[in-house]
Every structure is written in structure tokens, then in C-alpha cells.
Amino acid sequence: MKVLVPVKRVIDYNVKARVKADQSGVDLANVKMSMNPFDEIAVEEAVRLKEGKEHHAAGTADEIVVVSIGPSQAQETIRTALAMGADRGILIQSDTDLEPLAVAKLLKAVVEEEKPDLVLMGKQAIDGDNNAVGQMLAALLDWPQGTFASKLEIKDGKAVVTREIDGGLQTLASTLPAVVTTDLRLNTPRYASLPNIMKAKKKEIAMKAVADYGVDTAPRLKVLKVTEPPKRSAGIKVADAAELVAKLKSEGVL
């Protein structure tokens, strides 16, 4: 089985995003960038499918292709995935941050070329927080989708996905090929070992341009402004429970 894992280079999750003074966006100059944490979980699960770790049969996956759409520095993000155990990479270079619809269309073109049996990807990127590309890719391909996965099993040509939904867990079985998006509890990604980091340097990354795929990536949304959320004011200390209840009542919370 061939697995395609789309990954995105985003602001590191430990870095606090700061809004630019001119309200044009978030300041990403000289900020540490890393692989989107949900995508890291997707890469880890794909590697486990290949290694036969946890409940997966050995060799469930035989090839893992990683694709990223972004600036040339996104090669580092792809290298991270290759060091974790993916086999080869594709970078579709784009200096503008594309909208989910454009990303889904590009990924559809990649899927048509690569013909994977499974697309495994993060449920959302921690920059735009759209939570959309996986579902949109599945729709464009007319594939089934298993979103917000906290457990994945491949059996009898199906992806059996346990999903984190409001109030509990739901398990669906989708006929492959399918798109599965990962939630935080699916696994804990590994740290790449030094030998694997060295090996990853020799793995192939195909360089492509958005124009190579001939899809319409024109934006549909115009960002009018990006602002800081209202500041949270400092809290107060109360002496005892009675005062707390009185305060909550006077503030209209209760």
C-alpha cells in the first residue's frame, strides 16, 4: 500500500503568534518554523504502517511519499518527515500561503499522479486553523473520509478509523482509497535518530511549481485585517467560597 502524507511548514507550536502592527497578518519574520504537529502525527502513523508497529501488520504500507506546498524552506519540513522514515518527497513551491481549496486541488493533482491507497494528513494546520483540506481533498476525489482519527487500522481493504467526536468516539470503516485526518491522540511522534537524519539527506525531493499542475489557485477570500484578540484582564483573589459565590452572582455569571 502506498501512503501520501501532505505536510505543512508552520510557526512552531511553542512560539506565540504576534500580530503585525499594520494588521496585515501575523509576523513570521525570524520566527521558528516547524512541521505542523498534526502532520507529524500523520507521518508517524504512516511510518508505523510501514514498520508494522503497534497493531499494524508489518508492511501494511510499502511506500510513503511526503508532499508539501510552500516556500523553498519547506524542504526542511520534508527532510524532517524523511528522517522519521518517509521514502521520498515532493515540494510544490509557492511563496504565497494558498487557501484550503487551492491546496486541495493541488493535492488532488498529486494524488492522480502518485495513485496512493491512503492519504494520511493532519486534521488542521495550527496557523489558519481551517480544518478543511482533508475533507475537501476527499470530496474532490470522491473518496470517503475518516476525520479526527484517534485510532487507525487497515484491514480487508478498508481504513477503520476511530474518530474523536463531540461527546465520545465513533468508528467508521471506509473502503480504500480514502483520506484520513489525524487527531492528537493517534500517536506520539518519534524523534528522528542521527543516522536517520543523515540518511534522509540522500532521499529524493522532487521540486515542482504550482503552475506544473494547471489548477486554479486564485484566492476566494480577501483578508481585510488581522487583529489581536481583546486582552484578558487580570483576575482577583477572594477570601472564601461565600465571597466567590457573591462575586459570581454580581458579575452575572450565575
Binding site: P100, L101, D129, N131, M136, L137, A139, Q145
Partner: peptide, 23 residues
């Protein structure tokens, strides 16, 4: 923007060739 809404809304948007607006 429940887990169900987040699951099906982008899928509907893609079929209509429009940009979903989340949350």
C-alpha cells in the same frame, strides 16, 4: 462548528467549488 459540522462543511464547500469559512 461541532465535530459533525467541521466534518461535512468543507466537503460540501469543495463540491461547490467555494472556500469554506471555518468557525
Amino acid at each position: 462548528a461541532s465535530s459533525d459540522g467541521k466534518n461535512f462543511a468543507p466537503r460540501i464547500a469543495a463540491k461547490l467549488d467555494v472556500a469554506p469559512i471555518s468557525d
